[in-house]
Amino acid sequence: MLLAIDAGNTNVVFALFEFGEGADATLRGRWRIATDPRRTGDEYAVWLMQLLALRGVERSAIDQIIIATVVPRALHNLEILCRHYFEVEPLIAGQGKAAYAIDIDVDEPRSLGADRAVNAIAAHAKHSGDLIVVDFGTATTFDVIDFNGAYKGGIIAPGINLSLDALVGNTAKLPRIAIQAPRGTSVVGRNTEDQMLIGVFWGYVAMMEGLIARIRAEIGRPAKVIATGGLAVLFDDATDIFDAVDPDLTLNGLAILAHKAAAQ
């Protein structure tokens, strides 16, 4: 079995895959924990081993591990987890046998985040033609992948929770609110909380739709929009801009990289 680890700025996601015939991988479980670079391999182990036990999975059943991280300080302790508790040398996305093997057609290819590269790989494997991948994470990223699977560039915008934190943190009287779809269809709020929610939510939808329209115009060809990340489902009901919503795109990309590495 494969353990895929996606270490993001907010959460570290652990996912368990089982391979069938060919490259088909079935997601058997996923768990997340808040990202903390100070968390030791031992702490990860105590938490993860209990979750695996609840699923009836022996740690000896995991014979392959792959890690993607955008938090360099977190990598060392994750590697310790893999070596000490699973006796597996982990693959690192973008390195060695887990090299991306796609054309990264930007000014500084080495600066591309592992999550965005892996998203590009998974999106191209699952969808044909030109693609725009929108990933709702700590930041919201828009990535352009052409019909040959080459990464052509993208956009980085503040995530909606970052935007809300900035609004609340820099004003004296605005309350903290939860991100959710506003009630009804009116964009004129009648109280402070509704006005904040409308501004953040519908403002974000307008930003997203506007940027995607500009990207499509620049590409000059039809392009499918694939949404991923924790808040993708929330926005799916508010716009018809998405052609597909795939919350596990990054994890599936890691499974693709791991399968290719195993075949070498």
Results as ranks from 00 to 15, higher is better:
4 A>P: 02
4 A>K: 02
13 V>C: 10
16 L>E: 01
18 E>V: 14
18 E>Y: 04
24 D>Q: 14
29 G>Y: 01
31 W>C: 01
32 R>P: 07
37 P>K: 11
39 R>H: 06
39 R>S: 08
43 E>Y: 07
47 W>I: 09
47 W>V: 13
48 L>G: 08
49 M>D: 15
51 L>D: 15
53 A>Q: 15
58 E>A: 14
59 R>E: 12
65 I>K: 04
65 I>R: 06
69 T>E: 07
73 R>V: 10
73 R>S: 15
74 A>G: 07
74 A>V: 09
77 N>I: 04
82 C>F: 01
82 C>R: 01
83 R>H: 06
86 F>M: 00
87 E>K: 15
91 L>M: 13
92 I>G: 05
97 K>Q: 14
100 Y>K: 01
103 D>H: 14
107 D>H: 11
114 A>L: 00
117 A>E: 00
119 N>R: 07
121 I>S: 03
122 A>G: 10
123 A>L: 04
127 H>K: 07
130 D>M: 05
134 V>M: 11
135 D>Y: 00
135 D>W: 04
136 F>D: 04
137 G>E: 07
139 A>T: 08
143 D>C: 11
146 D>E: 07
150 A>I: 04
151 Y>S: 10
151 Y>A: 03
153 G>C: 09
154 G>T: 03
157 A>D: 04
158 P>W: 05
162 L>D: 00
171 T>F: 08
172 A>L: 10
172 A>N: 06
173 K>I: 12
178 A>C: 02
179 I>M: 15
179 I>P: 03
183 R>D: 15
184 G>W: 05
185 T>E: 12
185 T>Q: 13
190 R>L: 06
191 N>H: 09
197 L>P: 01
197 L>Y: 09
201 F>I: 07
203 G>C: 02
207 M>S: 11
207 M>C: 12
207 M>W: 01
214 R>H: 11
216 R>K: 15
218 E>L: 02
222 P>V: 12
222 P>L: 12
224 K>S: 15
229 G>C: 07
229 G>T: 05
230 G>R: 03
234 L>D: 09
235 F>E: 00
242 F>R: 07
244 A>D: 15
245 V>F: 04
246 D>E: 15
247 P>S: 05
248 D>F: 10
251 L>E: 03
251 L>T: 03
255 A>E: 09
255 A>L: 09
256 I>R: 12
256 I>L: 08
259 H>N: 14
259 H>V: 11
